[in-house]
Design a protein around this nucleic acid. Sequence first.
DNA 1: AGGATGACAGTGT
DNA 2: AACACTGCCATCC
Length: 120
Amino acid sequence: MNHQSSQTTEDRFRCIWRVVATIPAGHVMSYGAVARRAGLVRASRLVSKALRAAPDELELPWHRVVRADGRIAFPAGSRLHRLQIRRLTAEGVRVEKGRVVPASRPDDPDLDKLLWGPRS
DNA sequence: AGGATGACAGTGT
DNA sequence: AACACTGCCATCC
């Protein structure tokens, strides 16, 4: 039991996992945006930890989470880096030089501006 | 207790 | 556009 905060790290992880699970295929979200949507401000680094600690059974679409500038968080050339790009491209998301190309559409009524979609 | 680390972000140059 | 620096948050020596 937690004496100090009403929300434990585990609870926050669950909130984060829930948000990530809602990212539609063909779209991506930044770590910061996920944190914000989970009700956690400035917890982008926590999001990365949450994804790292996520049970495989959840089968989270972790590949739809990228940096704020659209770049893949994993080191270029790493196995996960390649896997993420592979899965994104399979969903129609354009990736150039390890960076997601934002869909320049005038209206994104959906989530925030930090959410891109497939090439329109 | 204090410093280093990381699937980050914002700002400045 | 690429880097460097600083701020953030939890975890691990």
